[in-house]
């Protein structure tokens, strides 16, 4: 159980990234499936090559950042549909990740990682004090995201997702804000990949598969529980959602389901979370419907 909460908090970093694209920018970004593994791969490769784990983890975030920029450029400058742009980067990253790792799997056994001090102190997966450390770390990150979104630049990013025409007419370069958001989001996802690899002790080529659904499940579950009326609450909700998701998976495994069933469980979870509010339960998740119902979307003005 403690392990599940810890893992949930680590995945909260990824959920914050998905929140930035999916909710703030209203851009369904599939790059994360690839950039998560990229982060793990970069961190694992650098740690096994003898680099300090701090440098390796930062480099992993940087690699995610670059992946996000690629998707952003494809979408804005290349005018490729957002979903497709993400898929293209994700698929391309599969090969890149194999190159980085030099194989399908890199074990981190007996390597010095960010988790080593915690593990040596006997805090990892055993005591709630260890969990508290993860909690504080992810909350600090969340507060940074909150702060960023209320700066002039952050407001421009929010407006880009909310009403692109308006913020364009106010002189913000919407291509720039879109690319920046994708970069930051995937930077967080890459960072999360690095942390997960160090936590579980290996990087694996398939660890990112279906991750976007985990991210969506976290965002939707969390905001169903806490709502998303203010940024402070919305970003807290995605972290909480990531923990709830891990606990659900933990329980599912406890009742005897196979780890191989988890992708199906995840998909079912997302579907249920999306359908429930439409059937009148969980009235607090109106945002998804709004996204498609058009409250936030503004029709393009017609020429002449």
């Amino acid at each position: 159980m403690i392990g599940a909460v810890e893992l949930g908090l680590i995945y909260g970093v990824m959920a914050l990234g998905v929140y930035l694209t999916f909710r703030v920018l209203q851009f369904p970004d599939l790059t994360v499936d690839g950039s998560f593994t990229t982060g793990a791969a970069v961190a694992a490769a650098m740690i096994t090559a003898g680099q300090s784990p701090v440098v390796a983890t930062l480099a992993a975030a940087g690699a995610g950042l670059v992946a996000g920029i690629v998707t952003g450029l494809l979408h804005t400058k290349g005018r490729i549909d957002g979903l497709l742009a993400g898929i293209l980067t994700m698929i391309a990253l599969w090969s890149v990740n194999l190159r980085i790792m030099g194989g399908a799997n890199v074990p981190l056994l007996r390597e010095e990682t960010l988790m080593t001090p915690l593990r040596d102190a006997g805090l990892l997966g055993r005591t709630w004090f260890g969990t508290l450390i993860f909690f504080v770390a992810v909350i600090i990150l969340k507060l940074i995201v909150d702060w960023f979104l209320t700066t002039d630049l952050g407001l421009a990013i929010q407006a880009t997702g909310n009403n692109k025409q308006m913020i364009g007419s106010l002189g913000a370069n919407t291509d720039g804000t879109t690319i920046l958001t994708l970069a930051l989001s995937n930077g967080l996802v890459g960072l999360c990949g690095a942390l997960v690899a160090q936590y579980q002790g290996f990087a694996d080529i398939s660890m990112g598969i279906g991750l976007i659904l985990v991210g969506l499940a976290s965002v939707i579950l969390g905001q169903a529980v806490l709502g998303q009326r203010f940024i402070f609450l919305a970003s807290l909700a995605v972290v909480v959602g990531a923990v709830i998701y891990r606990i659900i998976i933990f329980v599912a495994l406890q009742v005897g389901l196979d780890p191989n069933d988890m992708k199906l469980i995840t998909a079912a979870l997302v579907v249920v979370a999306l359908l429930l509010p439409r059937w009148g339960f969980l009235k607090r998740v109106p945002s998804w419907r709004d996204m498609r119902g058009g409250r936030a979307r503004v029709p393009e003005t017609k020429g002449a």
């Binding site: 700066t151 630049l153 407001l155 909310n162 308006m166 106010l170």
Partner: peptide
């Protein structure tokens, strides 16, 4: 079309205040 619905009145005005200027990390 001229305002961002999910942002507050003051946030919308802040966005407009920086028309054509650099948007940085200031509050």
């Amino acid at each position: 079309a001229g305002t961002a619905p999910d942002l507050t009145i003051e946030q919308n005005l802040s966005l407009a205040l920086l028309r054509g200027r650099r948007r940085g990390l200031a509050r």
